[in-house]
């Protein structure tokens, strides 16, 4: 069973990689990142459920990943706002430095 769940997780991760690399819009890139984190959460829980005998530290790792996801979202939204102030658009092309 764990193989099936890991395959699902791998597919979600692949879609996330595609999205994060191909999109021009900042927020769409963040969506790709979120999909990758989604896949990570699924894989961690699959391992916790199938191979650790219910060690709660597996679940703890998921809680940490969720915190990372919140941090990623908050910083992402802050950056997209900052970029929009400079560029009047939220696309990443030709964006080389954070300091204007």
């Amino acid at each position: 069973m764990i193989e099936v769940i890991l395959l699902i997780s791998a597919a979600i991760f692949g879609v996330g990689v595609y999205g994060a690399l191909s999109q021009q819009s900042f927020v769409m890139i963040m969506m790709g990142l979120e999909l990758m984190i989604n896949a990570t959460v699924l894989a961690i829980v699959a391992f916790w459920w199938g191979t650790t005998g219910g060690d709660p530290r597996g679940q703890l790792l998921v809680v940490v990943v969720l915190a990372v996801m919140a941090i990623e979202a908050a910083m992402g939204f802050a950056l997209v706002t900052a970029v929009y102030r400079v560029r009047k658009a939220d696309i990443t092309e030709k964006l080389k430095r954070l300091r204007n």
Binding site: A10, A11, G14, V15, V17, Y18, L21, S22
Partner: peptide, 9 residues
Amino acid sequence: AIAAGVGSF
């Protein structure tokens, strides 16, 4: 991007 996505999958 497609190659990277398929590759990582």
